[in-house]
Computed example of a mutant assay.
Amino acid sequence: MENLPLLLGAGILLLSLYLAAVFGAWFRVPGIILYILLGTLTGSWLHDSHLLHTAGEIGIVLLFFLLGLEFSYDRFKTIARKVWPAGTLDLVLNLIVTAGICMAFGLDGVSSLVIGGVVFATSSTVTAKLMQSTKRMANAESEFMLGLLIFEDLAAPLFVALLIGLVEGQALTPASLLLVMGKVAILAAGAIGIGKFVFSKLHDFFERIFSEDYYIVLTVGLALTYGGLAVYLGLSEVLGALLAGMMLSEARKTEDIENKVLPVRDLLLPLFFVYFGTTVILGDHVPYVGLLIVLVLWSTAAKVITGYFGGKWYGLSKKASMRAGLSITTRGEFSVVIASLAAGSAKLLASLFILLSVVLGIVLFQTAPWLTNRFLGKGKGKASRSKAPDGPI
């Protein structure tokens, strides 16, 4: 579409997304899969489109900004304290064991760590979007799943910093890791402080300007600013956006902000999945076919194990834990970032794995309640001790 006028190209893309969504509704195929496939098929025209990338990134920021609105600082602190055992299990099974499997198939150490990182990072964007679109935010396991995603989003920047040094032949130092951890701490402390001491006192101000056109300019601007600040510090915009939502939650105007921001998010978020599809570059042949099959099977099993046992440690029932495990198998934005550090056949292997895991993960998410009932029966089981979110997002 590079030879078309920008407006014409944008219009064709949005109409294509509409047709994909209608097709998906007719045949009960999740729209996210079709958006990603659309990006993969049109990758030769849309690849490296800065406008598409930026629009999709804004959609991601707004998605996690709205999620952050549901979490006060005190609630977030409770979740973080409860989720770290599951996060540690996730790290061991999906990163360390996967790297060992890759080395057993003959990959070098650095490439094995890259593939391990790709397998480790669940797609926060795809998972959160599925939770919202399937109205499962009120389920008992949703809080645990979001906490685990946040754990990964905190661990992934540290791991990327490690990988960049290894890929460039640099030695990893404790100072470099402490620097990244310090940035995370500063970003989080800033959000907590601004929320507690500034936005908690602005409830009447937000009430007064709700009907003004610039209300959405203010809220979206704050979300983008904090998400962009995270990127400036070398962290994830997902983390910054979530913290921005937590920050504005102190103003106690969550419903009003959601009503203003949701239409913008719904317009821009599909563009992220299209852009994600353009990053999956398919070659003439599939390298390491045996390893690819093993990775898909192992990574799915490892996430289910993480969700099941981690969920029980968190305080969920067996059924809620199983649903969580079946619902966190997709890979996405962080996996793409990590895969970009690979070279040659390892990069193609990582791209194919991401595409397959997205499709398989979405199918498993959609069927998780049914599969759970098949495996564990239809009884109610032990009641969860975890508090469900206050309402749908």
Score class of each variant (00 low, 15 high):
residue 17 L to T: 00
residue 114 V to S: 01
residue 236 S to P: 00
residue 332 G to I: 12
residue 363 V to D: 02
residue 271 L to M: 11
residue 363 V to F: 06
residue 259 N to L: 01
residue 204 D to G: 02
residue 65 F to E: 04
residue 343 A to M: 04
residue 381 G to E: 07
residue 371 L to A: 11
residue 267 L to G: 01
residue 391 G to Y: 01
residue 180 V to Y: 15
residue 115 I to N: 08
residue 196 K to A: 00
residue 173 T to F: 11
residue 217 V to T: 00
residue 283 G to A: 06
residue 184 V to S: 11
residue 267 L to V: 08
residue 333 E to N: 03
residue 200 S to D: 04
residue 64 F to P: 03
residue 291 L to A: 12
residue 244 A to T: 14
residue 366 Q to G: 15
residue 43 G to H: 02
residue 46 L to Y: 11
residue 293 I to W: 10
residue 104 A to L: 05
residue 275 Y to K: 02
residue 183 K to P: 13
residue 65 F to H: 05
residue 216 I to S: 03
residue 25 A to V: 03
residue 164 I to A: 10
residue 378 K to T: 15
residue 15 L to R: 14
residue 391 G to V: 15
residue 76 F to S: 12
residue 379 G to C: 01
residue 177 L to H: 11
residue 236 S to I: 09
residue 167 V to K: 00
residue 232 Y to E: 12
residue 318 K to H: 05
residue 124 S to Y: 03
residue 324 A to R: 02
residue 172 L to N: 08
residue 320 A to Q: 06
residue 333 E to G: 02
residue 317 S to H: 00
residue 28 R to K: 15
residue 202 L to T: 07
residue 322 M to H: 06
residue 110 V to Q: 07
residue 297 L to H: 03
residue 283 G to F: 14
residue 202 L to D: 12
residue 30 P to I: 07
residue 124 S to H: 04
residue 359 V to H: 13
residue 252 R to W: 06
residue 45 W to N: 03
residue 133 S to C: 01
residue 7 L to R: 09
residue 163 L to A: 08
residue 368 A to G: 00
residue 209 I to M: 02
residue 243 L to K: 06
residue 390 D to C: 10
residue 1 M to P: 06
residue 326 L to P: 08
residue 22 V to R: 06
residue 327 S to P: 08
residue 59 G to H: 11
residue 215 Y to E: 06
residue 296 V to K: 04
residue 352 L to P: 14
residue 21 A to S: 09
residue 26 W to K: 15
residue 384 S to I: 10
residue 270 P to D: 01
residue 215 Y to P: 09
residue 56 G to R: 10
residue 174 P to H: 11
residue 393 I to G: 07
residue 392 P to K: 11
residue 339 A to Y: 05
residue 321 S to C: 01
residue 175 A to C: 05
residue 110 V to A: 09
residue 25 A to H: 13
residue 230 A to P: 06
residue 145 M to A: 10
residue 185 A to C: 05
residue 97 V to T: 10
residue 276 F to K: 05
residue 265 R to D: 06
residue 88 T to G: 12
residue 230 A to H: 11
residue 373 N to H: 06
residue 24 G to Q: 12
residue 347 K to L: 13
residue 78 T to V: 07
residue 257 I to E: 12
residue 217 V to F: 00
residue 18 Y to R: 09
residue 1 M to H: 06
residue 121 A to Y: 12
